[in-house]
Computed example of a mutant assay.
Amino acid sequence: MNKLKKNVVSHCTATAALLLLGLSGCQQAVSEQETRVAPAPLVEAIDPVANPLAAVKARDKQMTLSVDADPNVLRREALALIGDARADDNSQCRVAAFGHKPCGGPAGYVAYSTKDGNEGDILRKIAAYNAAAEAENMRLGRMSDCAVVTEPAVELVGGQCKLVQHSSY
C-alpha cells in the first residue's frame, strides 16, 4: 500500500511540474508600470501531497462558490451601455479592449461612441467586466492560445462606429 501511495504522489508531482512548465510559456510580458495582482483565493490552499482528499474537496468548494461580479452580467451591461454606437462623425468613435485572455491581454475589442456623453460610464463598466473576466480565468485555471490580439481601427459606417477588420493574405 505504501508503494502505491508513493507512485500516486510521484505521478501527481510530475503532472504538476509539467503543467507549470506549459503555463510558463504562455506568460506575456507585463509593462513595468502595470502591476498585476491575483485575486484572493476563495478557499485556503491545501497541500495536495500532504492531504490529497482535503485538497480535492477544497478545489471542488472553490469551483462552486459564486464570485461577487459575474462576468457574463457585466459583459451584457457593458454592451447595453454601448448600444448601437451611433455617431455623427468618426471623431466620436473609440475602441476599447474587451474581455481578458487567460495568458494576458484583451480577448478582443469593441467599438463605442462618445456621442451621448456617457464615455466614462462605458469605460468603467468595461473595466469592471475585464477585471471580472480576468479573475474568473485565474480562479478556474483557464488556458488560451496566448496569441496577441492586435487593436483594430474604428470607423464610422452608416452612422455607427464599427471595428475595421483587416484581412491577411
Rank of each mutant, 00 (worst) to 15 (best):
S31E: 10
A78C: 14
N118K: 03
R36K: 11
K5C: 15
E134T: 05
L18N: 10
A153K: 00
K5P: 03
V8E: 05
L21K: 05
V154E: 02
Y129T: 04
R86C: 11
Q27Y: 04
G25Y: 04
R76A: 15
V30C: 14
E136H: 03
R75W: 01
N72L: 14
N118L: 08
T13V: 14
M138P: 01
Y112W: 01
K3T: 13
C103R: 02
P106C: 09
S24P: 02
V56T: 08
T150N: 15
D84M: 15
R76I: 10
G117A: 15
D68W: 05
V157P: 02
R36Q: 15
E151I: 05
G141Q: 01
V67E: 09
A147C: 15
A96K: 07
G158C: 07
P152K: 01
N90S: 14
S10K: 00
R139T: 02
L65F: 12
C161V: 02
E134D: 08
C161D: 00
K61A: 15
K162C: 08
T15C: 11
A78S: 12
K115I: 04
R36M: 13
V157W: 00
L156Y: 02
G25C: 07
A40L: 12
Q62K: 05
N51D: 15
K115W: 00
A87V: 07
L53C: 12
E77W: 02
N2S: 14
E32F: 13
Q165S: 11
L81P: 08
K125C: 07
L156P: 00
M143H: 11
K162D: 03
Q92N: 09
N2F: 14
Q33D: 13
L21Q: 09
A40F: 10
M63N: 12
R36W: 13
I126E: 00
D116A: 14
N2V: 12
G104S: 10
N118R: 03
L42W: 01
A80F: 12
D47M: 03
L42I: 06
L42S: 08
N137M: 04
T64R: 07
D84A: 15
Q28W: 05
A147G: 11
V8I: 14
Y169L: 10
G159P: 03
C103T: 09
V30M: 13
R139S: 05
M138T: 07
G120N: 08
D121K: 06
K61G: 12
A85M: 07
P152A: 14
Q27P: 05
E34W: 09
E32D: 11
A14P: 06
M1R: 06
A80C: 13
M1C: 12
Q33I: 15
